[in-house]
Design a protein around this nucleic acid. Structure first.
Lengths: 253, 253
DNA sequence: AAGTGGTCTAGACCACTAA
DNA sequence: TAGTGGTCTAGACCACTTT
């Protein structure tokens, strides 16, 4: 709260950031009201709001209407994507999906799953990875994974419709190991490629994941291939950055 | 530009977003001036600015002082982190770092490297991964990797000072294969763990990477271990989300 | 010189939360 | 009911870019 000299919103943000990083403002603590800060820094409330917006976009602060602004608390879940750590890969599904639920239960929290199945023209990036042409369609299995009722992860799996026509994968039931089902159909996945990028969420994702503004998401796209390098499956996951760490364990050989 | 009814900033953002996604506003195109939009939507300029801020935070728009606001263009680099694709891993360094330069040259662009070396108390997450106690120090080799003069990647490698004391790794010269140097010192890395998360950049990162606001970054942390599971090296990379895709190729076996 | 985005003020009303 | 953040208006000045 060192006022005195005239400060722009950037200086106010710097001052508050310093207090957060030094611990003067502890995680979870409530910040002074905007009107209070405006008085203390001797600026208009609009200027204070610009500073707070900056801190929000850095993920340091969250604001709640009618309640106040708070120093954000971090406790992201660690989540292994390499699958190499698993002692029992086949029981858990080749994509390690169920390991997510297991790790959630390990922390005494309740995982939930909402699953819908659609037949769709896949989005262009997915279509190109599955090698689907203009008119070809795919089966989309869309999952929203929740913890204690809060959406944590969007996960859409696409498979060529010709591959899974008439199988259990067309039904909106949980299939613990989609790889297993594909295996039993004679489609054995031997290799996969993961692509990861990060970006700001779209409007739809903000709503579906109930994201506070300023939260970045990682987009994880996994494409699975059989021994002939024919693509079998493309899984697109959207993970809020503040809730997830992706872990890969690899041999250096 | 469907005005008529009273619109809040969210509706204006929706309208502009629709125009961008439909291509009515093409990539790179200049948006109408804020005052123009305010007149067209029949709102105050402040309201227009709120809408534009939203689109900026979604990465759809960039604004430049005195010039205007523009629809953003995307063209992220693909960058393999798994190292499994490389035919000549040892020549290129076990962490695949030089493959980055190679991939840049493949696209007829010019990679540059700025390297500094410091002896530091490592940040807490790094210290814990290297197994360093309170007073122990590390050698930090800090790289800024540029393409055509534009900073593309921050990459800081930390090694326990006791491991590399008096070696070439203490000198601010490019060492093409740090793993090779460590190898020759008797420290052979056999395994590494990658951790990836995404977040908004800190103020310092925004400046060092010259990021437009609203760009998320991926933080990639790679910890290398020897055969005794003793940590040798921790490399922290910060990648602007709009410029990078991380790729892992993995066996499903 | 004209146009543009960045910043700031002063004041207002609303919706939501908590005492 | 009082406090809080969310939104919006009307107007101003500045710094930077383009003509």
């Amino acid at each position: 709260m060192s006022a005195v000299t005239a400060m722009g919103w950037a200086n106010i943000a710097d001052d508050l950031r310093r207090q957060i990083e030094s611990g003067d403002l502890a995680a979870g603590e409530k910040l002074p009201a905007e009107t209070t800060l405006a008085r203390e820094y001797d600026v208009n409330r609009t200027t204070v709001r610009s500073a707070l917006r900056r801190l929000t976009s850095e993920g340091l602060v969250v604001s709640q209407k009618g309640r106040g602004s708070f120093v954000r608390q971090y406790a992201p879940l660690r989540w292994s994507w390499s699958g190499f750590e698993s002692q029992d890969k086949h029981a858990r599904g080749y994509d390690g999906v169920d390991a997510w639920e297991a790790s959630v239960r390990d922390q005494d929290r309740t995982p939930e799953l909402a699953l819908t199945v659609e037949i769709v023209r896949p989005p262009a990036p997915v279509a190109s990875r599955l090698g689907l042409g203009e008119g070809e369609i795919a089966v989309a299995r869309r999952r929203v994974r929740l913890i204690d009722g809060v959406p944590f992860l969007l996960q859409d799996s696409y498979m060529p419709e010709s591959l899974v026509r008439g199988t259990d994968l067309m039904l909106p039931h949980d299939v613990s190991a989609p790889g297993g089902v594909l295996n039993s159909l004679g489609h054995v996945q031997t290799r996969y490629v993961d692509e990861i990028t990060c970006r700001m969420p779209t409007k739809v994702e903000t709503e579906r994941l109930q994201l506070p503004s300023g939260t970045a998401v990682a987009e994880h796209m996994r494409t699975g291939y059989d021994a002939d390098d024919c693509p079998l499956r493309c899984m697109v996951s959207v993970l809020p950055g503040d809730r997830h760490v992706m872990v890969y364990e690899l041999d250096a050989s």
